[in-house]
Design a protein around this nucleic acid. Structure first.
Lengths: 215, 215
DNA sequence: CCCCAATATCAGCGTTTTGCTGATTGACTC
DNA sequence: GAGTCAATCAGCAAAACGCTGATATTGGGG
């Protein structure tokens, strides 16, 4: 009884490498490879794999959307998300979409095998780092008093996004019908809370967190 | 007689997959793996490989810088650059640094093998796409009249990078021992040439082109 | 019910950065 | 040697930044 796996990643070299690694493990069989989210959905619907290993950053249809659409039609399939960095919004997105696991690309081969086996048995598998992040988030929400939480208010998040998009402070103030001074204060609070120094840092932060994207 | 190869990439899963792929090929032996540019230089100096497969986007020391430093000390080593997307500045940087080849991560296993063998024999190897780009660039340079080229001068590129890294104009002027006014003028020229409007745009441009990276 | 803490709003004031125009010097080209 | 380009600097007004402090509103907990 082998575990049937589909690999979805837009980089052929990565896919081939992974497939080759998994080929050494008789319990796991890679039945197909997909080059983007759309392809992954098509092949999964057709081939009924047990597990789909889904890269997050893919052209055409990203991993989060693909996972959501796939699980809507085939809720029995287990999906493991794979990404390069710690992107909270992506992680949250994948978990909300119903993925059974999440790993980083700098995890080990052994961890990947373990993750596949774990989700196949119906359990969830998260990498160490993700678990830490979830705990952190959980604790932050429970914390009382002057917490060390770096969470922004709704308004601050809104302004963070606008700043990161490159809109000037005065334009933001016009857009939101408040004074320039107000936007400035919010911006300062954002910088403090996130431990940043410059507007440039805000842009990079937003990109890292997936709040905005290039192009 | 095997070809000794060092793999440098910050993602363990990718490295392991690639190593496993190459292990199937008796003529090639992966003698070490490196997790960043610094690591790659250290291991290459120590182990004297024939070929280094160098990812471009790495923490600590990126592939371009690592290649330049490595080849300064060990000019006999062949370096193959590996990147995800078509980033002209990276490609140019790697070629200037003296790399013997350049591939994309969505190339095939066969192409990688061919590239390793080719550079080992002392020749250059570029993927199809890169070749096309080089031809394109070559043709553009031959164009007469008001060319559409938006190339920056060396000084402008230098300042572009510093700005994108988040260094303030006055700090840059101190760092380069010129007046604030000068940096300002350069910045304006950069904005004009690249058809951008704000500092934020510069950061995004630099990220898109791979001149800087997050984290 | 009142107070506290958090949030969102705005002001003052000095420094820094932008935006725009223009000027000088050196280097390389034709 | 005239022309172009790169790199350097200046002036000046408008905008943005950095820091401190103030006011209004809201939503619990004592």
């Amino acid at each position: 009884m082998t575990i049937k796996v589909i690999l979805a990643d837009d980089h052929q070299l990565f896919r081939e490498g992974l497939a080759n690694l998994l080929a050494d493990f008789p319990e796991i069989e890679v039945i197909a490879q997909a080059v983007n989210g759309k392809d992954a959905i098509d092949k999964a619907k057709q081939l009924n794999p047990d597990v789909v290993i889904m890269d997050i950053n893919m052209p055409d249809l990203d991993g989060v959307e693909a996972t959501a659409q796939l699980l809507k039609e085939k809720p029995g399939i287990k999906v493991i998300g794979l990404s390069m960095h710690v992107d909270k919004p992506y992680i949250k997105g994948m978990l909300e979409a119903g993925s059974s696991g999440y790993l980083f690309k700098n995890c080990s081969y052994d961890e990947l095998i373990k993750a596949i086996q774990t989700v196949y048995s119906g359990k969830k598998y998260l990498s160490e780092k993700i678990t830490e992040i979830l705990i952190q988030e959980y604790l932050n929400k429970e914390e009382i008093g002057p917490s060390t939480s770096s969470d922004l208010t709704d308004r601050e998040s809104e302004i963070l996004k606008l700043i990161a998009e490159g809109i000037s402070v005065s334009d933001i103030s016009n857009q939101l019908f408040v004074s320039i001074k107000t936007i400035n204060t919010h911006k300062q609070h954002i910088l403090e809370k996130l431990n940043l120094k410059t507007t440039t840092d805000i842009v990079k932060y937003a990109l890292k967190k997936g709040i905005i994207s290039l192009e």
